[in-house]
Design a protein around this nucleic acid. Structure first.
Lengths: 165, 165
DNA sequence: CCGCGATATCTTGACGTCAAGATAAATTGC
DNA sequence: GCAATTTATCTTGACGTCAAGATATCGCGG
């Protein structure tokens, strides 16, 4: 009577158990659900970013600048440290945002190797609006989960994350 | 006294609360940890795939063929249904795998629009070895989490996923 | 048995990402 | 002061992904 609904990931595990019964797939369920969940959440979030002419990449940079507080300026190195991407990726992100007029590269008076990335006033407006929509959308995405489950899940994700970083 | 260690995500939330106190960022912690966790896991998994000359994209296709059982053949449409990507992406994945000699496109005798993607013997060897290494690596990735926590986390992820798909 | 909407797969063009390495300026140590 | 090392950022080339649309074939309704 204790039937739990099988989801997509359960079917994959069942196939592996049939084809390669000697493999221990006990971790695959958890990691598979993590991946699938992330893919769904990610796509839903992208839709909201797109409504504001942004991608998750550009939102990520603008949001980092915005939440750093006035004057909304950081070096590429600072942005790099905050965003889990490589330097080449960050250069490209900044290039795109600069083309779009949402940030500008200023000379760094203290270090001629470096530059300062600054939100333009258009960039500030854009990220303020996008962030408002984004957090509302995040609320919607977790709305199907009971508040107690959300807390429990967050606590476990925190624990897990701590083992990896 | 109940101090929980602040992680990277907590710092982001604190910044938003300072800069945009009117925003309800209560869902951002959970979703942010999910994203970060997935990024870490993903990269660790890529390393193992790379040791076998694969990427997560190519592993994904080969694994789907492998766990479907003999004769290790599926249509692009079947693969599409199993893998959360678009048809253009699947065409590209198959192209790459075909170039690498790991799968081949066979004519579908029952439908001239369609083809059948079949693992080559080299592809079978490759995915068997890669899958063995991959599941071992997955065990390693969750090893830092107590077994009870793993179960609880998996159950919550399942619940959450069910609300989205 | 024919026309036409449905289906299976591929093509195109624009991005985003990474690894590896290039460039230029700052800093360190003698 | 100056060479060697380190640091900050950018460049290059190869992939992977998507959305939108192109092709070719299937199969249904008349």
């Amino acid at each position: 009577m204790e039937e739990i609904d099988k989801d997509h990931v359960d079917k994959i595990l069942a196939q592996w158990r049939r084809e390669r019964p000697e493999l221990d797939v006990s971790a695959m369920g958890l990691l598979g659900r993590l991946a699938r969940l992330r893919a769904h959440v990610s796509r839903e979030q992208e839709k909201v970013f797109a409504e504001h002419g942004l991608t998750s990449a550009s939102f990520d940079v603008l949001a980092t600048l915005r939440r750093s507080g006035p004057p909304f300026q950081l070096s590429p190195g600072d942005l790099l440290a905050a965003t889990m991407v490589t330097s080449g990726t960050m250069t490209n992100r900044i290039d795109q945002l600069e083309k779009a007029g949402l940030v500008e590269r200023l000379n760094n008076p203290e270090d001629r190797r470096g530059v300062i990335i600054a939100l333009t006033s258009e960039g500030l407006k854009r990220i303020n609006a996008a962030a408002t929509a984004h957090v509302a959308n995040q609320q919607r995405l977790v709305a199907g989960l009971a508040p107690g489950d959300r807390e429990a899940l967050d606590a476990l994700l925190r624990k897990f994350l701590a083992t990896l970083e």
